[in-house]
Structure formats: C-alpha cells, structure tokens
Design a protein around this nucleic acid. Structure first.
Length: 600
RNA sequence: GCUCCAGUAGCUCAGCCGGAUAGAGCAAUUGCCUUCUAAGCAAUCGGUCGCAGGUUCGAGUCCUGCCUGGGGCGCCA
C-alpha cells in the first residue's frame, strides 16, 4: 500500500502564491508602521504595469494619504521601513507619486520553480475551504437536437466545472434538460401513430431523432386531430399513465443517447448527471404551497404569481413572476424555483453557477429574488448567473444554417474537424511527410474540437463573438493550434534529444540568465494566481490569455536559447523550464477541456 | 415607455478594487531557417477608449445626461 500513494513532497510545499505572500507582508508592514487600525487597509498589490517597474507594484499609499494625513511618498517610504521581503525581493523602491515597486529575486524564482518541478499540481494548492458547487449544464430541449445555442453553455460550463474541481471544490455537474412539457405530447402522439411497434420492441433508430421531430412537427402543424392527440398525450403523461410514460421514456432515451454522443465528441466531462425538468416535477406543488404559506403568492387573472420588486410591465405596474398558469400548469420559473429549493435543502450547495445566455438575465434576477424572499437563498449560498453572449455569423447576426434554422451543433463540430484535418493534409504534402490514418484522424479531431472550444473560451463570455473557422484554426494568434504547437515543440525536444523529462534530476539547479528565461520563469509562477482569478470571477478567458502569454514567452525563449546544444548545467536547467512550460500548457488546456498532442 | 448589456487601432478583442507612457492578435510593410517542427521569432505602422459634463492627487475603469447597436418586458423555455 505504501508504494501506491506515496506522500509526495508536494504536500510540504507551501502554496506558491507569491502575490498572496507579498500582500500579507505588506499588510503586516502597514500595521507595524501606522498602527492596528490599518489592519483593514488594502495595499493594492497588483502585477507591475510595466516590466521596468519590477514584477509587482503596491498602489495603496496614494489611497491612504487623506486618511493618514501624510503625503503618499512619505507613507510609502515609512511602509518600506517596516517591510520585510528580503527573502523574496530585491530592495523595494518608492517611485512616482507613491508606488512601491517590487522585483522578485532570482534565487527566489529559481527555488519556486524547483519546488514546482516535482509537483503534479504545478504549485497550485487546493483551496483551504472547499465548497459544494453546482454547475448547470445546458438544457437542450430533449425533443430537439442540440444546436449552436448550446455550444457556449457547454464549453464554458465544462471549463468552469473543471477549474473549480481542480482547485478542490466539490463539483456537481447537472444537466437541466427539458424532458417534460408540451413538446412531448407531440412526440408521443407521433410515436404512437408512426411507430406503434416501438412501444412493444422499444426500438427506434437513433439517427432518426431529427427527422422524427420534424415529421412530428409537420403533423402537428397540419392536422387538428393530431393536435388533439398531442394534447391528450400531455394530459396522460402528467397523469402518469403507464403506457404514455413508457413512450415518453423511449423518446427521452433516444434524445439522451444523441446528446451523449455530442457531449463525447466535444469532450465534455463524463460526470454530467441528467436532472431534468421531470426530476423536479413532483416538487412543484410544494413550491407553490410554500410560496403561498410565506404570503408571497398572489392570484392575478387566474394565474398564481409572485409580484416582483423593481420590475414593472409596459404600463408601469409591478410585474408578476407567474409560477402557476391559469390552466393549472407550471412553467420554467416554477421548475427553476424548485431546483433552487432542492439544491439548497437537499444538495446543501454553497455556490450554483448558471452559464446561460445573457438574454435570460431578467429571468435569473427574478427567480433569485423570489428565492431570496422565500428564504431559500441566503448569505451562505451564492447563486450566480454568468451571462453569455451569442455566437454570431459573419454577418453579425445569430448563426444560422443554410436553411435558416439554428445551426446544428454536430455540424459545426464536424466542419471544424474536417477543416483541421484538411490543413494537416496540406501541410503533410508540403513537407513531404507521411503519417498514418489514425494519426491524421486524431490530430484533426483534437485540433478541430480544441479550436472551436478555445475560440469560445478565449472570448470574454459576456460579449457576443463572430464565429469563424479561419480564425479559430489559424496557426498564429490566440488560438488552440498556437498553444498546441508550443506544447509539441517541447515534446520534439524530448524526442530529438532522447530526454526523459520525468528523469530530470531533482537536484539539478535551475539557472536564470537570459532575459527570456526570466520572463518564462515569472510566467510559469503565475499559473496559480490566474486560476484563483478565474475561481472568483468565472471568466475562463483569463486562463486563455495566460496560456497564450505563456506560449508566446516560451516561443521567445525557444528562439533565443538553444536547449539541447547548451552546456551543463544550463542544458538541464533549460530542459526543466521547457518541461514546466509543457506541463503548464497541458494542465491549463485540460482545465479548459482541451487535449494536447505529442506531435502535430 | 421601462429595463439590462455593449461601444477601445482598418478588423477581432483584452484591459483585474480607479494607478505610472491604453495592450494583444489579425491585416499591411520588413528582416531571420547548414542550428531542438519557420504552425516560429524580431521590427515598423496603427488610438479623440461613442459624445458631453462631473467626482479626485489620478478616469478606458466610478456618477449623470445624451447618441448608436443588441437583448428583455404576463401565462414559451
């Protein structure tokens, strides 16, 4: 047993958050210099705006000038008298109106890198107080195929889930699929009509989902009798009629399998659990009853509503959130409220993240308001809607397929793969290389899927972006292929030099001499700071930006510093830097849900 | 009408609690492969941060108004 999970030295390495460490020192110095009432003062430590100012700068002195009745420069220099950072930094300096510039010591950088070298987490410590987190995965209506609209929620939600999980949180991935409601009446009615055998054999060809839906829709639009049958099916479904439930299950299963296939193709976490609308169905009457008991429920025009604070309709009157329709049916607000309640009371969740389109901002504000007023959402639980911009076509409008409908997700993915593959094949011809079909297919898939996901993630999630295969697959710029190439370059060194990175001496020193080595070292040590930032503001594009910056810095290093031809001990030192870069890229991309390649 | 979001280089976008001279990529122009994959590197060019006020030591960032674009606004999700 001993050998299976050795107590690795990583557990002994202190958290590599240089930023946090320095901030702590600055705060201590503030109190030492100006007294305990300064304990709450923020030294405003941020990365330096310009390399000539060092690595970090503390801007706090300016803000404290009024409070302390001293000039910012005087505050800064007094603070410096009490600041002990000799183990981390060169002697700090006061600059400009009162900035404190901090430059990390070479020996400190070298030691930190050395510590990270043997750490699979690359210096990223798990959070001290893990939370129970739910990430809401997109809710494709089970009755329809997934389309462009599902791309961002899937990709961004999956990345956030991976990042939070890596940081040590207990993440529950829930797909809130639309597996209940009126569209099912139509599908069940059509199933009965067109595939009566299916109810007996339980068989239906998977590929038929789209056509199945279209055919059902066509019947529904054309035939009043069929509409009546569909409505009847809904009633039977809600009444729990066994035969109808069975038909419903067949349709759900059909859709789930199709969606799973797309999830797999996209490389989404396999841990996604389906917890659709039908799951919350039994709780809906309780939600209404509880709202009523709390005195929040008002009946208006036959519908049961909660009137919202701060929302008005076109006439300027308070806007209701309808939780039970006048016909007695429930709507998505009811389901979402039931989900909030369940997540708090049963899942005991502390943070719920909804990566959903920005157009639903009002909806979330409204249900969160009701959730708070009902006492389900408290200060202990954070329900957060992370609004997403739309994916637009080249014309700046919502991306459509040629036929004018929302583009099918699977088509986008396959097109990206096909283009990535074609790019590779062109290159193979140009370079007179031959590769196996397996190699070509794999590179095509990894690059294609990686490119499409990275393009999505690298954009600030709040804003819409224009979908362009040419840009996402471009070999230069902030794209997945650029990052993959930096990774491949390192693996190329390993192959060429017959170097086993894992066997690189634990006692070989890291030596930073060239400017590009310093830049790379500093970039490598910022990984944990970036992940903390993403944890806080849920913007994966920050991680993308970091990885792009790291890759650029690496390419500069690669260009300026020969590695295999260098003399020892520089050779090993540079090999370690290269390896750390590759591992950071691999880990970083994996947290974004993107795979790497050893060759491409 | 109310409300939310956006407006930064020719194009696509970053810009963290307000900090020093606003940053990338693409495009354009120009150098660098007998040397670890040139899918790279270096350099040049490019800005009234939508407009007008305000807050203060300091504003792309905060406040007010306006302009432009997009979304949402009672039984769809």
């Amino acid at each position: 047993m001993y050998g299976c999970h050795p107590v690795s030295p990583k557990n002994l390495i202190p958290m590599n958050s240089t930023l946090a460490l320095l901030k702590d020192r600055l705060q201590t110095a503030l109190v030492a210099a100006f007294g305990p009432e300064l304990a709450d003062a923020d030294p405003v430590l941020v990365p330096a705006s310009n390399p000539k100012f060092g690595d970090y700068q503390a801007n706090g002195a300016m803000g404290l000038a009024k409070r302390l009745g001293l000039s910012p420069r005087a505050i800064a220099s007094q603070l410096l008298n009490h600041l002990d950072v000799a183990d981390l930094c060169d002697p700090p300096e006061v600059a400009g109106p009162g900035f404190i510039n901090l430059r990390l010591k070479t020996a400190y950088l070298e030691a930190q890198l050395k510590a990270i070298q043997s750490d699979p987490r690359l210096g990223v410590a798990p959070v001290p107080n893990p939370k129970r987190v739910i990430v809401d995965y997109p809710s494709p209506n089970i009755a329809k195929e997934m389309h462009v609209g599902h791309l961002r929620p899937c990709v961004i939600g999956d990345a956030l889930a991976r990042i939070l999980e890596f940081l040590g949180h207990n993440v529950l991935r829930l797909s809130h699929i639309g597996d209940w409601g009126t569209p099912f009446g139509m599908l069940i009615a059509y199933l009965r009509e067109a595939y009566p055998d299916a109810l007996v054999s339980g068989k239906l060809d998977l590929g038929d989902l789209a056509t199945f839906y279209r055919a059902a829709k066509k019947r529904f639009d054309e035939d009043a009798t069929f509409q009546e049958a569909a409505r009847l099916a809904v009633v039977q479904l809600q009444a729990g009629d066994p035969e109808t439930i069975q038909a419903w299950k067949i349709v759900c299963d059909l859709s789930n399998r199709t969606n799973r296939k797309i999830f797999d193709l996209m490389g989404l976490s396999p841990q996604i659990q389906e917890r659709g609308e039908s799951f919350y169905n039994p709780f809906l009457p309780d939600v209404i009853a509880e709202l009523d008991r709390l005195g929040l429920l008002v009946e208006d025009q036959g519908a049961k509503c909660v009137f919202l604070e701060g929302f008005t309709n076109k006439e300027g009157k308070p806007l209701p959130l309808i939780v039970q329709k006048s016909d007695g049916g429930y709507n998505y607000a009811t389901t979402d409220l039931a989900a909030i309640r369940y997540r708090v009371t049963e899942d005991r969740v502390q943070r719920v993240i909804y990566p959903v389109g920005a157009e639903q901002t009002n909806h979330f504000t409204q249900i969160f308001q009701v959730g708070k007023r009902a006492g389900w959402i408290t200060d202990e639980t954070e329900f957060v809607h992370t609004p997403l911009g739309n994916i637009l076509g080249e014309d700046g409008k919502k991306l459509k397929s040629r036929s004018g409908e929302a583009a099918r997700l699977v088509d986008l993915l396959e097109e990206a793969i096909a283009r990535a593959r074609a790019d590779l094949e062109t290159r193979l011809t140009d370079e007179n290389r031959t590769e196996t079909e397996d190699f070509i297919a794999n590179v095509g898939q990894v690059v294609g899927i990686g490119a499409i996901k990275y393009a999505d993630l690298s954009q600030n999630r709040t804003s819409s972006y224009i979908f362009s295969y040419d840009k996402m697959l471009a070999l230069q710029g902030n794209t997945a292929p650029y990052m993959l190439y930096a990774y491949v370059r390192v693996q190329g060194i390993s192959r060429k030099g017959g170097v086993d990175f894992e066997a690189l001496g634990a006692d070989s020193p890291i030596l930073l001499q060239d400017e590009s080595e310093f830049a790379l070292a500093k970039s490598l040590l910022q990984f944990d700071e970036v992940l903390s930032a993403v944890e806080a503001d849920l913007l994966p594009n920050r991680l993308c930006e970091y990885l792009f910056d790291l890759s650029k810095t690496f390419n500069q290093f690669y260009d300026r510093c020969p590695i295999l031809q260098a003399d020892e001990p520089q050779r090993t030192s540079r090999l370690i830097l290269a390896d750390l870069t590759a591992r950071t890229i691999r880990l970083g991309l994996s947290l974004l849900g993107i795979q790497v390649l050893e060759r491409m």
